[in-house]
Amino acid sequence: MPNVSMTVNGKQVSQEVEGRTLLSAFLREKLDLTGTHIGCDTSQCGACVVHVDGKSVKSCTLLAVQADGASVTTIEGLAQGDDLHPMQAAFRDCHGLQCGFCTPGMVMSAVDLLQHNPDPSDREIREWLEGNICRCTGYHNIVKAVKQAAQSMKGQQAAAAE
């Protein structure tokens, strides 16, 4: 079996896996990082979104071996200790979730959006989240949360620059 090594949430991991092991299964079953959810398992719903080398991808449609040598961030890797990431805090403040199943993927996608578009419009947020499906609370408060996170992250950057 191939050996796969990668950095997951800042920690180096190395394991033998079957070639067919999906990254989503590797994270959940081998590393017990069950914050990454598997919804549709057909690359449509986005519950499984993680970052691979800084870019959001659907981990149910990536083999673990394809991420060999990469740096992977999951929802568990966002908070700093007890301090939630601004995106997580905004989802809580704005009630951007109901059942919470889609939330890890929503948050990971939205964090990627703000990396290259720090001040997105409502439309840009909705277009970016096209690959993330929420079946209960709807998208209105999710869009609000992403906007709030964008503002608070801009504030943090301004404070850091002073």
Binding site: S43, V57, T61, E130
Partner: peptide, 9 residues
């Protein structure tokens, strides 16, 4: 094409 995550891969 597709969605943002598909375009990243």
């Amino acid at each position: 094409i597709g969605d943002a995550q598909v375009r990243n891969r």
